[in-house]
């Protein structure tokens, strides 16, 4: 009945089948390509265009300036600070997200616990996921306030003797916002890995156990390799998203105190909507895009390798 099967079974139509086979993958991707072509390419093209003009939107007759904006952005001291902060923020987030997400996914997948208990815990563990970013920022501001509950608990338990200004201290603010981002983002890994764990056949574990492998060995030689394609996808997406994390930082510290939590995202936002330098903001966005594409390139290469 089916086309593939019929073609494959009949060597005479092999050529036709090859052509068909070449078209299929594009066919499957066509809705995606259509949507992105209509809604994505034009705006992104506009951003690229903005980035080589002197200024736009505020300026009725923009003038082409070539790479001048890129030179200006890349040599800007604040940009460099923001880049450094963003890299710390992003790498910390990605690594801790992965560790937490994997740990929690393994715990929540444990067959030692009854399915009911597991499902209750699963719901609790995804909680950070179901709130909009501005509410997460507000909630953590409340809790990390000098008079907030965290300081109260720390003082009460005798761990600190003085109230700590988590978000207003130049030593702590960057770590505090990183922590908040970690809190809000780990369920993404957890749920995806939980799903990934279902794909690992029990037989592999059973075979491993018979061969005398212990828990850590099973984890290292069975679980991790099986989850690898998912972990790579997750880490890449998380890297790209965290680089752009804006609301959580803006609404907790606004990039301060001083510039200790200045990120590429807050830097870009301020260029666009605080000083109305839309061209420079677009340039900064392009830099973020290029950085993301490096990571994407790594992913695409791995993609090929895992197919082979």
């Amino acid at each position: 009945m089916s086309v593939d099967g019929r073609f494959a079974a009949n060597p005479k139509t092999n050529n036709l089948y090859r052509i068909w086979k070449r078209v299929i993958p594009y066919g499957y991707l066509s809705p995606t390509i259509l949507l992105l072509a209509v809604l994505s390419f034009l705006p992104i093209g506009m951003v690229v265009y903005y980035s080589v003009m002197d200024n736009v939107i505020m300026n009725q007759n923009p003038v082409f300036v070539g790479a001048a904006n890129y030179v200006k952005i890349l040599t800007d001291g604040v940009f460099q600070t923001a880049l450094g902060n963003t890299l710390y923020f992003t790498l910390m987030s990605v690594v801790v997200h992965l560790i937490l997400g994997l740990t929690f996914a393994m715990l929540l997948n444990s067959k030692l616990v009854s399915p009911f208990t597991r499902s209750v815990f699963r719901v609790v563990y995804i909680l950070p996921w179901v709130f909009t970013a501005s509410i997460i920022a507000i909630l953590w501001r409340l809790m990390l306030n000098p008079n907030g509950v965290i300081n109260y608990l720390l003082e009460w338990s005798g761990l600190v003797s003085q109230k700590i200004e988590w978000l207003s201290s130049r030593q702590l603010a960057l770590h505090a916002v990183t922590f908040i981002n970690i809190w809000s983002g780990y369920p993404f890994y957890m749920v995806s890995l939980l799903a990934g764990l279902q794909g690992i056949p029990d037989e592999i574990y059973e075979a491993g156990t018979i061969d005398g492998a212990n828990g850590p060995q099973l984890f290292r030689y069975v679980t991790l390799p099986q989850l690898r394609p998912i972990i790579i996808s997750l880490a890449m997406l998380d890297f790209i998203w965290t680089m752009q994390q804006f609301t959580l930082i803006w609404m907790t510290t606004g990039g301060g105190p001083g510039r200790v939590t200045e990120m590429l995202s807050t830097f870009t936002y301020k260029l666009a909507f605080s000083t109305y330098e839309f061209s420079l903001a677009s340039t900064s966005a392009m830099v973020i895009l290029v950085l993301s594409m490096f990571v994407a390139l790594f992913y695409v290469r791995r993609q090929r390798a895992s197919d082979a």
Binding site: R141, N145, P146, K163, E165, L167, S168, S169, A173, T252, T253, G254, G256, P257
Partner: peptide, 11 residues
């Protein structure tokens, strides 16, 4: 009062 550097009018 502590917390100035991230405090807003609403706080």
């Amino acid at each position: 009062a502590p917390g100035s550097f991230s405090m807003r009018e609403q706080d």
